[in-house]
């Protein structure tokens, strides 16, 4: 079954040739300038600031790129009519959706790796000791990006890029606020609204599992550079991500399979 990987590699090639990697340059400049600026302002806290800002920035960048590329992923094939050449070949439609998703995931993984390289270089120049916990952080960032990508692909399997983009950003914002939504729902007395809020909190992905900055653990606000997560936690988060991905991608594949490609 080399068909899905072939589609994935083609998607990756498209992203690279369409200069997606230029975003990396932008990221590098932002990280370096920000770390220099904030580093000058915060005596002895340069490393901590660079780490926090760097990883938060990386996460934001990747989520943005995942959303932008994800909502266009299927739509562009339809708009450019390339799908007419592809789908009459001996492939299933689900292979097409999966191939596109994995291609984008690969693109994002490469971007993530390169961004990490930039960030670690800056940290190294600041004289920071690189902690192994950072690897867990990177893994969590990637898991969140994958979930957002799948959500974007899901919406784009039946909607326009603009609407898909709005929906995806909406799901992302709600997903990052799941604990808050639950807290609000618990405090409300009236009927109806709490039920709705709990429903929303259940449907959207709980992205707080992946984005742990600012989360409260044992009554303590934790910073992203803290070593409060272990590999067991990352494993659990991976399981959650895998489950969510599977459900969302299955829905996307089912919707796309029924679609008329006019």
């Amino acid at each position: 079954m080399m068909k899905t990987p072939a589609i994935a590699l083609n998607t990756f090639r498209e992203a690279i040739r369409n200069k997606v990697l230029y975003s990396l340059l932008f990221f590098a400049v932002v990280v370096i300038v920000a770390s220099l600026a904030f580093g000058a302002l915060s005596v002895h806290e340069e490393v901590r600031l660079t780490t926090d800002l760097g990883f938060a920035g990386m996460s934001a960048f990747l989520v943005l790129i995942a959303t932008f590329l994800g909502v266009n992923l299927v739509y562009k094939e339809l708009e450019r009519k390339t799908v007419y050449t592809l789908l009459p070949k001996p492939i299933h439609r689900y292979q097409f959706v999966l191939g596109k998703f994995f291609g984008l995931a690969l693109t994002l993984l490469v971007l993530l790796a390169l961004m990490c390289g930039v960030l670690l270089l800056v940290l190294h120049l600041q004289g920071a000791a690189l902690e192994p916990a950072l690897a867990m952080l990177v893994a969590l960032i990637f898991l969140e990006v994958l979930v957002v990508t799948a959500v974007a692909v899901f919406f784009s399997s039946f909607s326009t890029p603009l609407l898909s983009g709005l929906f995806t950003v909406g799901v992302f914002l709600l997903g990052r606020s799941v604990p808050d939504i639950r807290a609000v729902a618990a405090k409300l007395d009236q009927p109806g609204l709490p039920l709705l809020l709990r429903g929303v909190a259940r449907v959207v992905p709980n992205l707080r599992y992946f984005y742990v900055t600012g989360a409260e653990i044992d009554g303590q606000q934790v910073a992203i550079s803290g070593t409060f997560v272990d590999w067991g936690y990352v494993g659990l988060a991976s399981g959650y991500a895998a489950l969510y991905l599977a459900v969302v991608l299955l829905l996307a594949m089912a919707l796309f399979s029924r679609r008329d490609l006019i």
């Binding site: 068909k3 072939a6 090639r13 498209e14 007419y84 050449t85 592809l86 001996p90």
Partner: peptide
């Protein structure tokens, strides 16, 4: 297809190789 559109970032050869891979 009618007025065919292909992946314009590919070369002619790359397109054909890619399509061939879809046939396994």
């Amino acid at each position: 297809p009618e007025s065919p559109y292909f992946y314009d970032y590919l070369t002619g050869r790359e397109l054909l190789v890619f399509v061939a891979e879809l046939f396994g």
